[in-house]
């Protein structure tokens, strides 16, 4: 069993994800280069944070057309677990694996700080070790994390229990305080906070450990 970590030109959290999974949790990982269309038999895929293709055009817009993500789309459509963190969440919305879009923070600043969140695990397969309404703290680090969708879409997401992570004190202007979303089937999760940076007590807090540990069921 191993977890694939997608690497784009401009990814900068790929090694953090590897450290969290291998160094902190003892799970095996494989890097998946953006030009490869072979997922090398991995059992789960993480699209890490960073600035894929320099975030040219829009965050995630170019990445969406990379060969590796065509394979990831197929993997997700067949129920494969896919986790998008930060830039990875932006990529998932551009791929239309998750609805809505991530836009410039309301007050324009890049925000890098520990952020309190409320978890509502719903059907999301990675969050089943968290209790409904549980408060956790994960770091955020983004300039474009303001989730946007129209009000009927938001109502539908909330009705389906797909808003699995909310900001306790909304830092960026996201509608519905959305910090993380799952798809209807629960196998795709996108979130702006960084669970991989909350796995090692040395870096302050381990609230992300259970999420990362759940990648391989």
């Amino acid at each position: 069993m191993s977890v694939g970590v997608v690497v784009f030109p401009g990814s900068n959290c790929d090694r953090d994800v590897r450290w969290a999974l291998e160094g902190c949790l003892g799970l095996s990982t494989r890097f998946l280069w953006h030009e490869d269309s072979d997922l090398k038999g991995v059992d789960a895929v993480v699209i890490p944070g960073g600035f894929s293709y320099g975030d040219y055009l829009r965050c995630g817009a170019i990445a969406r057309f990379s060969p590796v993500l065509q394979a990831v789309k197929d993997f997700a459509d067949h129920g494969g677990p896919v986790l998008g963190i930060c830039n990875g969440f932006q990529v998932l919305t551009e791929m239309e694996l998750l609805p809505g879009a991530l836009t410039r923070n309301a007050r324009l600043h890049f925000i890098c700080e520990p952020t309190p969140l409320e978890v509502q695990p719903g059907q999301c397969r990675w969050l089943q070790t968290y209790t409904a309404g549980e408060s956790i703290v994960l770091p955020i680090a983004h300039g474009e994390g303001r989730f946007q969708c129209d009000s009927s879409q938001l109502e539908e997401l909330e009705g389906n229990g797909q808003v699995v992570l909310r900001y306790a004190a909304n830092p960026n202007g996201s509608v519905g305080d959305v910090a993380g979303l799952t798809n209807a089937a629960g196998n795709v999760l996108g979130l702006m906070p960084h669970p991989e940076r909350a796995c090692d007590p040395a870096t302050g807090g381990i609230d992300g450990r259970r999420l990362m540990a759940s990648l391989l069921g």
């Binding site: 829009r58 057309f65 551009e94 609805p99 879009a101 946007q148 969708c149």
Partner: peptide, 8 residues
């Protein structure tokens, strides 16, 4: 499909 994102 590429230059603009019709969601936003």
């Amino acid at each position: 499909r590429l230059l603009a994102n019709p969601v936003i």
